[in-house]
Design a protein around this nucleic acid. Sequence first.
DNA 1: ACGATAGGCAAGTGATGACTTGCCTATCAA
DNA 2: TTGATAGGCAAGTCATCACTTGCCTATCGT
Lengths: 97, 97
Amino acid sequence: MAEDVFKALADPTRRRILDELVERDGQSLFEICTRLVTKHGLGLSRQAISQHLAVLESAGLVVTRREGRYKFHDLNTEPLERIMTRWLRPDRPEDTP
Amino acid sequence: MAEDVFKALADPTRRRILDELVERDGQSLFEICTRLVTKHGLGLSRQAISQHLAVLESAGLVVTRREGRYKFHDLNTEPLERIMTRWLRPDRPEDTP
DNA sequence: ACGATAGGCAAGTGATGACTTGCCTATCAA
DNA sequence: TTGATAGGCAAGTCATCACTTGCCTATCGT
């Protein structure tokens, strides 16, 4: 649902996670944790990140695959593409196909 | 700031307001109130809508112009176009909140 | 001048959301 | 098996947010 996508995007930490997945797809929870801490200095617990990933997943922005004890997270931009054109009026010459 | 834009879009009522302004630009506060009530059955006070409009305005999604005792609200899609491509182009992650 | 219209300001309330802590299960390596 | 790794579940705290209520200012028409 569109509601879930907008709410998922409302949090800066979740947007950081999406940035991280754009840069490197298929990361595990712990990978994302360490990269958020080392690269952006975010002091968040593992559970916090886990909950953020759950929100992103239920919004369809992240899809997961399990392999053994690892759970890999992949970005899915399809919900974004559906949503962003909602208020873009068709009177813009460069954007209208 | 991108943060304000995402937070502004997080609320369903504010998204309704943007829908309303796409359909008919330059409405006053009372016009928006009555249209939200009659067309979508939203039972909200005038102040609630006013606060939502303030959020949208500080996010840059709505620009206002005063004429006498009227204040007209116009849609501005420029902030949307800036944040849209953040995760759609893997080469260039953008800066943030 | 008056009353009616259009809008703003500020404090208070109730709900949602972000984050933590503690404990639990499952998988792998030695 | 033991211990370490990867992750999940649930309750609790604290802040933010949406919305209301009440009162205030400014502008217009008569």
